[in-house]
Design a protein around this nucleic acid. Structure first.
Length: 434
DNA sequence: TCTGGGGTCCTAGGACCC
DNA sequence: TCTGGGGTCCTAGGACCC
């Protein structure tokens, strides 16, 4: 927690629905519901007019229709949402270079990195109001709600307090006074299951949470969550605003209007999803080693099965083959409502290739390649060499083999890509372990 | 005929290694 | 013929977020 209110959280109000109302004037002032259109869909966003009827996010489309039959139900135009979101993020970056998007409609901004004369409450308040005005102009009339406080946690809590089209600044030193009367469910990370556990322990408010010993919370909720909540109950939150977040997995899934019973149909759908995952990976420069399938049965029980390859892939056919073999081990009697495929354990080498390399880096790589090879290799590695030295196959896919060259001085060493039929690549016997 | 899609993080057990 | 403990990797499931 900082001594100044310098973390800003911005939340675009009813974002998807607001974009629809902006682009289609006939929808303005009327209940608009994005999502929930399919047989098993749920509501992604309800406009404030629709919320009046008790419609909210994650509600089934069936129930939303029952509560608000005259609403406009739309399936969503994600290109428009992405475009408008990008405009907003640009506006935030004009204020501070340190912007952490959380989703299309939410972000943290670090005001300590902004070009402001100071971080007094009056100064950050004025900056927040200017920001809301700029967002309104740039998006063609969308409104945003802002919270400003001394940590991510407090800024996010603050932005919930004056929705829509409002702002709350928490003066430093007043955090606990604000938090203590609130329910524990305002804490991000306390969902229905955690709230129920806390309720059974007689804990409803943050003041009650604050009174519990740390050991007791860890016993109740586990190490990470117990310790985390103990800290948050004291308004302690040292998490920095981070502009870059690493992608950990890429997946595609689908829920079908009627349950699937034919295994060949399931295999076909998995294969298509696997191709889509592979295409997205190549487009974004990722490859990964762990392929996971997700299967939701008719009764909503959800199964995951995964398999880890010895080297990363971005190839849809490879992903599909593994997905099919993982499905083969599952009993899908009774029907399947959802199928999904994902890849995790992402390697970073293709990403690095996207940025290219500088002459200095190239020269450094040449130097490393001339150094004597390291004589240990990962178990089962495919050891190869070219005229420059020895390495081991780190990744393959799309007709390309990636080789990591290791030296004693600089593990992990440089990475080179070859076509997999490149005659310069010769396979070697792995050297004996020493 | 209640319960989306795309993610992140945590836990827990077993294998394996030192 | 008895057996500790730590670390890492892998797998499965669950909670949570927008």
């Amino acid at each position: 927690m900082r001594s100044t209110a310098s973390v800003l959280h911005l939340d675009l109000d009813a974002f998807f629905a607001a974009v629809e109302q902006r682009d289609k004037p006939s929808l303005r002032g009327k209940p608009v519901i994005v999502g929930g259109t399919g047989g098993r869909g749920v509501v992604a966003t309800a406009s404030y007019e629709a919320r009046t009827f008790g419609v909210g996010s994650a509600m089934s489309g069936r129930e939303a229709r029952a509560r608000c039959p005259h609403a406009a139900f739309l399936s969503g135009r994600f290109h428009a949402y992405r475009e408008t979101s990008a405009w907003v993020m640009e506006v935030l970056r004009e204020l501070s270079p340190l912007v952490e998007p959380l989703s299309l409609d939410e972000a943290f901004v670090d005001l300590a990195a902004a070009d402001l004369p100071d971080l007094e409450v009056s100064t950050v308040t004025a900056a927040g109001e200017r920001l809301r005005q700029r967002v309104h102009e740039v998006t063609g009339g969308l409104t945003a709600t802002v919270g400003i406080a001394s940590s991510k946690f407090l800024a996010k809590v603050a932005s919930e307090l004056d929705k829509p089209d409002g702002m709350t600044v928490v003066p430093p030193g007043t955090e606990l006074t604000l938090l203590r009367p609130m329910k524990v469910t305002v804490i991000p990370g306390v969902g229905p299951a955690t709230a129920e556990r806390l309720r059974r322990a007689g804990i409803h408010t943050i003041a009650e949470l604050e009174a519990v010993e740390e050991d007791e919370l860890v016993r109740l909720l586990g190490q990470a969550q117990g310790h985390g909540l103990w800290q948050l109950a004291r308004a302690r939150d040292p998490r920095p605003v981070l502009a870059e977040r690493e992608t950990k997995s890429i997946s595609v899934e689908g829920t079908y209007d009627t349950d699937l019973n034919d295994r060949r149909v399931m295999e076909g759908l998995l294969a298509r999803q696997a191709r889509d995952v592979g295409a997205r990976m190549r487009k974004n420069g990722f490859s990964g080693r762990t392929v996971t399938i997700k299967v939701r049965l008719h009764d909503f029980t959800t199964l995951n099965r995964s398999s880890t390859l010895s080297s990363p892939t971005d190839d849809g056919t490879t992903i599909a083959r593994i997905a099919r073999s993982l499905l083969a081990d599952l009993d899908t009697t009774g029907g399947v409502r959802l199928l999904g495929v994902g890849v995790s354990g992402l390697a970073d080498w293709v990403q690095e290739d996207l940025f290219g390399s500088t002459p200095e880096e190239d020269e450094a790589e040449e130097v490393r390649l001339l150094e004597p090879p390291r004589r240990t290799w990962p178990p089962g590695a495919d050891v190869v060499h070219d005229e420059m030295g020895q390495g081991w196959v780190w990744g393959s896919g799309s007709g390309v083999v990636t080789v990591r060259f290791e030296t004693a001085e600089t593990p992990p060493g440089p990475v080179r890509s070859f076509r997999d039929d490149d005659p310069a690549l010769r396979r070697l016997e792995p050297p004996a372990e020493d």
